[in-house]
Design a protein around this nucleic acid. Structure first.
Lengths: 340, 340
DNA sequence: CTGAAAGCGCTTACAG
DNA sequence: CTGAAAGCGCTTACAG
């Protein structure tokens, strides 16, 4: 019993052949005698030999792994996203290296650089991922696709949700169904997506009407706080609709309303954004803007994998495509005037 | 502009030193003149140099990565688990390599062997992970911990939820609150956890009372089907409580009951297992057995990381510990006799 | 303080 | 069909 795993050398010695032949036999090359191959296979099994990924990657320049740099792993949004990415990766025989929660830009930079030599390509979703950051830290020849990024002159393809259009559509729907005073609960200050959704909200309001902006941070807790504040305001001034920049805040607001005895949608309509699985389980079920989260992950990975297959990583696209992911209005109970 | 990323050689050439000195400077070794170090740092930055993970791993025998072999990525259970694992990994500066959904045993075996040389240790949660499978496919010296495994003579530490105790406690609670006929909706046939939960259910029934067993597969859909079937049965024979082997099936059953006009808990009590985040959002909120899912992932990773730090991977424990994760009864509306 | 050399475990031309 | 050798990009004794 040795203390370290068997290497190709061990197999070669036991089988009485060279390491080159072992390599060929194990990789299915044609030019190995059936009898030789069999012996090698037997020895390999007996020794529980598994090739070293590191050594293999070093020489083949292939890791069969894609990395995903995500801002967070918490909650249903990322769960769905990872599921979509993973599904597509598996279908192509790629492994998934996950890196998450890089609060500050230095951490994110380190994470990005640590990917070098570990992955064949990268899916990047990060508030730090602007053009400058990427050109500083992304290994120059590593293929990458960006998710929901506000990056302008990016060298990488971008997949971005139609945050603006979705928020405008929801706002227009609320207006159209008779809501007079529609408040918007925004996301984190510097967040690109949150900004787009706010812009969409403002664009959807009737001309001349003043936006009512509340501030949140995408968390359920901040939604609860905003909901409680609204519920406490004088009935005359209280908005008759609350549109939250994401679903989790809407969930929090719904609980605050329930605790305050405010009825949804009778006293106030409520809407979110994302359509996380939870949205349709709420009572009343939550109206929202559906983002095809898992599908987005799948698309991003497929685009990345295609770029890998092309192989010529030096051919940078002059104008990499920006794919807008369409969204869909999902009207449920929380937005109708009365229960059916 | 070269077509491939800068290597340590490029940095050495540009800085006019040997690769050994570059390596020392970049890794923070003491024995480098400040002036030399600075020059190297400057060149490295200019060249956007990032060390190759593969090359580094090959020589250091460290990947700073742990692998997680999971049966699936779908749903809140795995979302929570990954979050717990990731959080602990990040705290220790470890990356996370994810591998999921290995339906058949060959896929799972291949996934396991592909981890060789890519990770320093492994968290394994797989229905295939019996003793034989592991000794065949787990690289012999790779530290690993098992999650929710039924493995007996394992060579690896096991973290397992108290499925039996939790299911028995819930059953006893239902009995204690006056339910006379308690049905159990089981999980997939060969699933170890599902079996343990069924055993717990049977143990919790009053002596002499016959178990009522329905079959499901952990999916919401199978829960709906079972719920619909129950709702359709004659009122006299219908159970007055349904205990589902996991929460998602309970969610499905709840919808079936609602669709059939059956009131929960008045007509029938309902309980699940896991306490996924969704459980407390249901209306009525779902009674369940709380598994500290994220904490379990964290514990598993911490145990693994500790084993890595010890370093001596050859010292196999004669009797690796089996840690039972305690669970907690969570009684919510779906189980009380009347709404408060 | 610095460099030349060996070596990690593989794959792949190049010979034979 | 098989082997000896070079090399992937690093780190680390060993000298100096």
């Amino acid at each position: 019993m040795s203390t370290s795993p068997a290497t190709i050398k061990d197999v070669a010695r036991e089988a009485g052949v060279s390491v080159a032949t072992v390599s060929r036999a194990l990789n299915g090359a044609e030019n190995v005698l059936p009898h030789t191959r069999q012996r090698i296979l037997d020895v390999a099994r007996e020794l529980r030999y598994a090739p070293s990924g590191a050594a293999r990657s070093l020489i083949t320049r292939r890791t069969d792994t894609v990395g995903a740099l995500l801002p967070d792993l918490h909650g249903e949004f990322f769960s769905e996203l990872i599921r979509g990415i993973d599904q597509a990766a598996r279908a192509r025989g790629l492994h998934l290296l996950l890196s998450s929660s890089h609060d500050d830009v230095h951490e994110a930079a380190a994470a990005l650089r640590a990917m070098n030599g570990r992955v064949d390509g990268l899916i990047v979703m990060s508030p730090h991922a602007d053009d400058d950051f990427l050109s500083q830290n992304l290994p120059p020849t590593l293929p990458a696709v960006l998710l929901n990024s506000g990056v302008q002159g990016a060298r990488q393809p971008v997949f971005a949700v139609d945050n603006f259009g979705g928020a405008r559509a929801m706002t227009e729907h609320l207006v159209g169904s008779g809501r007079r005073r529609i408040a918007f609960l925004g996301g984190p200050a510097g967040n690109f997506e949150a900004q787009e959704r706010r812009r969409g909200y403002e664009a959807g309001l009737p001309a001349g009407s003043r936006p009512v902006l509340l501030s949140g941070d995408f968390s359920e807790q901040s939604g609860y706080a905003a909901g409680a504040a609204l519920a406490a305001s004088a009935a005359g001034e209280r908005p008759d609709a609350l549109f939250c920049a994401n679903d989790m805040m809407a969930v929090g607001a719904l609980h605050a309303f329930a605790d305050a005895g405010l009825r949804v949608p009778d006293d106030i309509a409520l809407a979110g954004f994302d359509d996380i699985p939870l949205a349709r389980y709420m009572r009343p079920a939550l109206s929202t803007v559906r983002v095809p989260i898992a599908a987005m992950g799948t698309k991003a990975l497929d685009a990345l994998a295609d770029a890998l297959d092309v192989g010529d990583r030096s051919r940078a696209l002059a104008q990499p495509p920006r794919t807008v992911i369409p969204v869909e209005l999902v009207v449920r109970e929380s937005c109708t005037q009365k229960f059916p």
